[in-house]
Design a protein around this nucleic acid. Sequence first.
DNA 1: TAATAAGCGAGACGGTACGTCATGTCTTACA
DNA 2: TGTAAGACATGACGTACCGTCTCGCTTATTA
Lengths: 205, 205, 205, 205
Amino acid sequence: MPTPPPSDRSGRGRPRNPQTHEAILGAARDLLRSQGYARFSIERVAADAGVSKASIYRRWPTKGALLLDLYMAGLPSDAIAADAPSLRDELHRYLLATIRRVNDEGWREILRSLVAEAQYDEGTARLMQDKVIRPRREAGLRLLHSAQRRKEIAADGDLELILDMLFGPLWYRLLFDHAPIDEDFASRLLELVLHALKSPRRAKG
Amino acid sequence: MPTPPPSDRSGRGRPRNPQTHEAILGAARDLLRSQGYARFSIERVAADAGVSKASIYRRWPTKGALLLDLYMAGLPSDAIAADAPSLRDELHRYLLATIRRVNDEGWREILRSLVAEAQYDEGTARLMQDKVIRPRREAGLRLLHSAQRRKEIAADGDLELILDMLFGPLWYRLLFDHAPIDEDFASRLLELVLHALKSPRRAKG
Amino acid sequence: MPTPPPSDRSGRGRPRNPQTHEAILGAARDLLRSQGYARFSIERVAADAGVSKASIYRRWPTKGALLLDLYMAGLPSDAIAADAPSLRDELHRYLLATIRRVNDEGWREILRSLVAEAQYDEGTARLMQDKVIRPRREAGLRLLHSAQRRKEIAADGDLELILDMLFGPLWYRLLFDHAPIDEDFASRLLELVLHALKSPRRAKG
Amino acid sequence: MPTPPPSDRSGRGRPRNPQTHEAILGAARDLLRSQGYARFSIERVAADAGVSKASIYRRWPTKGALLLDLYMAGLPSDAIAADAPSLRDELHRYLLATIRRVNDEGWREILRSLVAEAQYDEGTARLMQDKVIRPRREAGLRLLHSAQRRKEIAADGDLELILDMLFGPLWYRLLFDHAPIDEDFASRLLELVLHALKSPRRAKG
DNA sequence: TAATAAGCGAGACGGTACGTCATGTCTTACA
DNA sequence: TGTAAGACATGACGTACCGTCTCGCTTATTA
């Protein structure tokens, strides 16, 4: 359930047309996929969806918020599961799912757009933080903690850094496109992450 | 002197005013630092520099090219040195220099802006690739190779992935700001990278 | 010379295209004539003239200012001449000219639009005062004064009121359309005005 | 009782709430007085009255109709009385009453708004004609006729023009604000009108 | 006493226009 | 002949109203 059309006061007034909602998201998604972020504008989305601009602004205050809902709507339930029995298997599953999604041009464009938008809209940056970055990290952290409890990994690992090491390279390749994000990359990255979990933790400072 | 004011045909016509060049770069830098990428526009830069827009377009074909020159102008010679005697020392030195720069608000804004711009301008993406991403990776690669030759590290490491692991987390923290990029982060990241170099390389696929 | 295209700083930069100027005025005039004030918008004028909105706003700050230039451009030199030899003849000539113009649908629409616009834009109200109302009254006043000097009329007439009596009924019929503004009306109005000039001036208060 | 809330089909359905009616008129009046015609919108009136837009449109088909009701509601019984014993006294009374009303900012704004609205809404123009312009003229005409019957004035005066001369200057000063509408103006205008009634009627054409 | 018919506030909806801003190109005068 | 100012077409921005339309109620009248 990604984004329930949020009406402030309960059943007052004419209810929002869910088709309008879908038409906007659909048009936005198509536009992004076909033309890229450069040609993505509220104006075009409204025209393509056969909807007034006001109907978009009524639902999403900024372009970033709309992009984020595109992201949320496309998110299946393949987030990292904290209670998975095996750390390796769960991370592997997660990486494969991520790779599949990230190699879809539409999805890739959504992520790139969100990053771009977050660089100049403070609100989008916050949203991105709250809805994309932090949730993934928290799920990852829970998974690592449960692996620690199971003694699958050492208790003293630098987990925050491990997460940077897991997600950082993904974003890095996604944004700069210097190398493919494929299964081979996933496997090697996984091994490195797991190996890193065996690294002795250095004293702080 | 990263970018010499390039005049196409040599001594023909009115010579470019080097002050104009500097005024533009200066105004761009100030604007970026004070207002951020959101308020950064060729229009504003021209106005602030007291220069016509055409004078900017004559020198830089796109906003991204201008941003990139801002980046180049600010780049001292602290790139990774391929011939450094110690891998650890050289990487440490590089990371500390990077951290210092990246914590300057102006510089940070330049990098964020470049990333944003690269997401919708194909040309900027290429420039970014050629002038920022690849050079750093190549220098890193040369350093790693020389360390291999010195047997400081194993000969069969997955060096590309090592570089993702070195640069990825830096960009990740820079763009999403979920955690500081400080000396502690640098040290820990360095240890992880060095530790990873000891990881046995998995068979491909 | 109704409205010289005003450029602030002298000959710097690309000069304004006089054809653009004319295209805007032409499109505005046509639109007003064909669709009336109700459908008159800067948006439409720009589209019809094949010109950008900015090019209109560069020249005229408000819709009212544009309308006023339409008025000015259409104004021939048939204003009241202060030095005419005969009051009756000059007023008659002026009234006939006015009638002719006012019975042109385009011109009528310009005047109605100006009145409407002046009711909600303070600036247009002032412009209208300065460029339409006052000049006509001042010319009328000068004519009446010169008639007084010639002893064509009494020296103690209530000239301001005479002017209200001359112009008031014209606007009244123009705006509310309850009766035609034709030559008969002009002649009768003229007689009444001239007759009124013979009225003994009442003591004030 | 100027405008009885008109329900089409007799007593079917829930009767209209008279408080809603009053709230709308009140809010409209206040808004007009405080912000002027420029900021007068159905949207604002509805919001200020705490009423839905539909409730306004149910009662008044256009903005002009609402404005006209504001006018009607404010109209006391000081219209010109056809059967007054003295033309001069009745006109004087009428002018003084008019002056008083017209110098009230709220009332002035209603009249200006009606004029503006009538310039682009055909329906409002007709309403204005039927409810404002013609009634006043007809009452004036009846008064003049009865004065003729009493031989107070000549039988062959150009009465239509006399009415233009009476009302025209009032609207003219009201709309363009070039001079005050005060008691002095009223007295002088009255004298001129009465004087004009003694003017020999010119042959037509 | 139930059905029916309107009234009502809230608010969604497709439109249209507003006035501003930025883009990248162009035209002219000036050096 | 190149530089510089600024006009230009294009097109997006976010806001405000327009008049219409649901929606879930409430309030009368009529059957």
